[in-house]
Write a protein that binds this DNA or RNA. Structure first.
Length: 305
DNA sequence: AAATGACGCAACCGCTACTGT
DNA sequence: GACAGTAGCGGTTGCGTCATT
């Protein structure tokens, strides 16, 4: 199927920034039709605009639509974008459906101009959401735990219960094993605590993983891993991997609970550690790492050591 | 004050997916 | 099933604005 001819190729069709008059014409035309645009291709002629239909659609969907939210992105929105991006990749339109009033273009721009750089500074690969190899990190002198914590934070609420438990366990093992400095201990504990405290609006709060109900109904990491392996073994057709990254975001929410396996049991390490860590300190979400005095203090201390 | 570079955003381009014939 | 027309998506570009030298 070849590319269809587009009116955009017509040299007489105006390009570039829209004028107020053009905006007004477009808005009035669409409002007159009760918001029902019909065919975009025929719209410019019908509305009296010397524009490509494509251009009109873009102008309407990205700028003129009445339900568009303007202004800076909130921390929650930023966290949500990171979380969704970790699971969906550059599916900007899909991501946009989860942020009321935000357009795919706006989210894409915000990602490229803000979040991407932020993650890079934190030593997190914005594509894979994994910790970058030390050589590629811009802050490879920072404590490893902070980078780990940043990577975890970048995942936001994407994690399944299994991922959370695995990360938490790893963090706590590091905590136990960190005997070289107070900073290391604090940073490791902080990272672990952040995993417990951070939250997202589209997935269960990570603290949910520590609730008895959740844990009783959520398979352990090992169990989930076995299930995933079994599913991969049984189903080798492409595109049907059980791995969360291939699933739509709204399905991610239910990933952990969707496994058809026996309950994890009455006891979980996370349950125990959660009780230990929770009263220890209240920490901010690491997505707001920059500009946060708590983290700045830790960083400063680490530089001195 | 002028020049330069960095940044952010709106808009465009080209491709793919979807739908109707 | 093949084809044509169209909408929508994601990557990229261009330009205005702001910060720095």
């Amino acid at each position: 199927m070849g590319r269809s001819p587009c009116c955009c190729r017509d040299a007489s069709v105006k390009k570039g920034p829209w004028t107020e008059e053009e905006d007004k014409t477009l808005v009035e035309y669409i409002q007159k039709r009760g918001g029902n645009v019909g065919r975009w291709r025929g719209l410019p002629k019908a509305a009296g605009l010397n524009r490509c239909g494509k251009s009109c659609r873009l102008r309407w969907t990205n700028y003129l639509r009445p339900d568009i939210k303007r202004g800076n992105f909130s921390d929650d929105e930023e966290r949500l974008i990171i979380t969704l991006h970790a699971g969906l990749g550059n599916k900007w339109s899909t991501i946009a459906t989860h942020l009321e009033g935000r357009t795919d273009n706006e989210i894409k721009n915000y990602w490229n101009t803000h979040i991407r750089k932020k993650l890079m500074r934190m030593g997190v690969d914005p594509v894979t959401h994994q910790q970058l190899p030390p050589a590629e990190q811009s802050h490879d002198h920072l404590p490893e735990a902070l980078l780990w914590a940043a990577a975890v934070a970048s995942l936001g609420g994407l994690d399944t219960g299994a991922l959370m438990q695995a990360q938490l366990l790893q963090q706590l093992l590091r905590t136990i094993g960190s005997n070289n400095s107070t900073t290391g201990l604090i940073a490791n504990l902080a990272a672990a605590n952040t995993m417990l405290n951070s939250s997202s609006s589209i997935v269960p709060n990570q603290m949910d993983y520590l609730q008895p109900d959740y844990l009783c109904n959520t398979p352990s990491f090992a169990e989930q891993h076995v299930v995933q392996q079994q599913q991969l073994t049984n189903d080798t057709s492409p595109g049907t991997s059980s791995f969360a990254a291939a699933e739509p975001a709204d399905q991610l929410c239910n990933t952990a609970a969707s496994y058809d396996v026996a309950p994890a049991g009455d006891w979980s390490p996370a349950q125990e550690f959660g009780g230990l860590l929770e009263p220890m300190m209240e920490l901010p979400g690491l997505c707001s790492l920059e500009g946060d005095s708590f983290w700045e203090d830790i960083l400063e201390e680490s530089y001195r050591l």
